[in-house]
């Protein structure tokens, strides 16, 4: 029993030292930022997630609020947890909504959206 308690407490100690890994990928930060106002049209979007993701089943769409979709390339991984999307043309001033759907390396799917503004 004492040996068992030693093993259990050892495991607990190792875990306490460990940094938590987030199961399921959630949006950590984005460029342009969530709710941010930027001056000048961004050439690409970067979305960083709390976990490594699978590019093959991930997608990002961008559309002007009250307007049409903005053409964009297929998302690629610029880091294991970062999706980059090259925009098809320069964004005009206005509010844009980015919608994303990703699958994390633990097979779980998540999705969400956010807005940013391109200042005149």
């Amino acid at each position: 029993m004492i040996r068992f308690l030693k093993i259990a407490s050892g495991a607990a100690f190792v875990c306490a030292l460990a940094t938590a890994a987030y199961a399921h990928a959630f949006l950590d930060r984005a460029i342009p930022g969530v709710g941010a106002t930027v001056s000048g049209a961004p050439a690409q979007l970067q979305l960083s997630f709390t976990q490594d993701i699978v590019a093959a089943f991930s997608s990002v769409q961008i559309a002007a609020v009250g307007g049409g979709a903005v053409p964009a390339g297929k998302p690629t991984l610029s880091a294991p947890n970062v999706l980059s999307v090259t925009l098809g043309h320069a964004l005009r001033p206005g509010v844009y909504r980015v919608s994303w759907h990703v699958v994390s390396v633990d097979t779980h799917a998540t999705s969400g959206s956010y807005q940013f503004t391109v200042a005149p």
Partner: peptide, 16 residues
């Protein structure tokens, strides 16, 4: 003994 020790480890990894 292994289940409890590894279970504590697994829980720690998820919620540390």
């Amino acid at each position: 003994a292994l289940i409890v020790a590894s279970g504590i480890a697994n829980a720690g990894f998820r919620v540390a």
